[in-house]
Design a protein around this nucleic acid. Structure first.
Lengths: 136, 136
DNA sequence: TTTTACCCTATCGATTTAATAGGATAAATG
DNA sequence: CATTTATCCTATTAAATCGATAGGGTAAAA
C-alpha cells in the first residue's frame, strides 16, 4: 500500500510544478486545494525540503517552491524519500538491501525471483516518469 | 512491503509444486525445510486450502497437496488471496476498488496516473507468471 | 514590534502484522 | 475401540507503523 504521506507528497509536488517557480506557495493553500490535513502536509513538505526538492521562505509572502525543473525530478527519487524502498521485499532492493533471515540461497528463492521482476519493471516506470509528466 | 504471510505462502506453494501431487506433505516438513514458524504456516496453509489452492488429509500420512497443476496457477490469484490488492492504491485496483475521499477527479490526479501505470505492469507480470515458473 | 508563516519535536489513537496458545476434529493403526 | 497422528479453528497478544495533532520556536516582512 502506498502511504498517504507519499500520496500527499506527490500531490503537493504536482501542485507546485504547475505554479510559477519564483512565487512561494503557502502550506495552507496546498492543503485546501488538495484536501490534505494542514499539519500532516507541513511535515511532508519539511521532509521534501530537507531532501533537496523544495526551497522555503519564512514570513509574509513566504511558502514553498520547487528547487528544480519538474522534468529533472524522476519519480524514483520522490518515491525513495517519501515511501522508502521501491522493491516489495528488501532482498531485491537496490537502495535498501537486506538479506532474508530464513533464506539460505537467494538465487533459488521463488519469492526473490518473482519480486525481482516486479522491481525491475516498477523501477523502469519510476525512472522514466518525471514530475513534469504528472503535471499536465 | 510484501507481508511475510505472502512470502511464506509462496514458498510453501513452491515447495509443494516440486513434490508428487498425490503424496500429502505435512506442515512440519515444510516449516522445517523453509524455516517458517509452524503455527504461522499452519494458518497460511489453511487460508490456501479454503481458497481452493490446496487439498488436505488428516491423521497419519496426512498433510497438504496442490489441487491444480502448477502451470495453471497464475500468481495473480495467489497474490490476491494472500496479499490482497495488487495495486498500490485502491483507486486503481481492479478487484478492490475504492474512491479516494480527497480526490474530486481521478482522471486529473497525478498519483492515480502514476499508480495506474505501475499496476498495469505488475499485473502483467503476475498474470504471466505461474507457480510452475517459480518451481524450477 | 507586530504579524505572518515556516520550523521542529513529541505524542497519541487506531490499525496491522507476525506469532503463539490451546484445544477440537477426523483419519489411520494396532 | 482406543491411541496416535496431524489438520482444523478461534482467540489473544506484543510490536510496529501510520495518520494525524499539539504546541511552541524561529525568522522574515511590514
Amino acid at each position: 500500500m502506498l502511504s498517504k504521506k507519499t500520496k500527499y507528497g506527490i500531490k503537493a509536488l504536482t501542485y507546485l510544478a504547475k505554479q510559477d517557480r519564483n512565487v512561494p506557495v503557502q502550506i495552507a493553500t496546498i492543503s485546501e486545494s488538495e484536501n490534505i490535513s494542514l499539519k500532516f502536509l507541513e511535515s511532508i513538505l519539511l521532509t521534501l525540503r530537507k531532501n533537496g526538492f523544495l526551497g522555503s521562505k519564512k514570513g509574509k509572502g513566504g511558502g514553498y517552491y520547487l528547487l528544480k525543473d519538474p522534468k529533472d525530478i524522476p519519480m524514483t527519487t520522490v518515491m525513495r524519500v517519501l515511501e522508502g524502498p521501491i522493491a516489495m521485499i528488501p532482498c531485491v532492493s537496490l537502495n535498501f538491501y537486506e538479506k532474508c533471515a530464513d533464506c539460505p540461497d537467494e538465487n533459488a528463492c521463488a519469492v526473490h525471483m518473482l519480486m525481482l521482476k516486479v522491481r525491475d519493471n516498477t523501477l523502469q516506470i519510476f525512472r522514466n516518469t518525471t514530475l513534469a509528466d504528472l503535471s499536465i
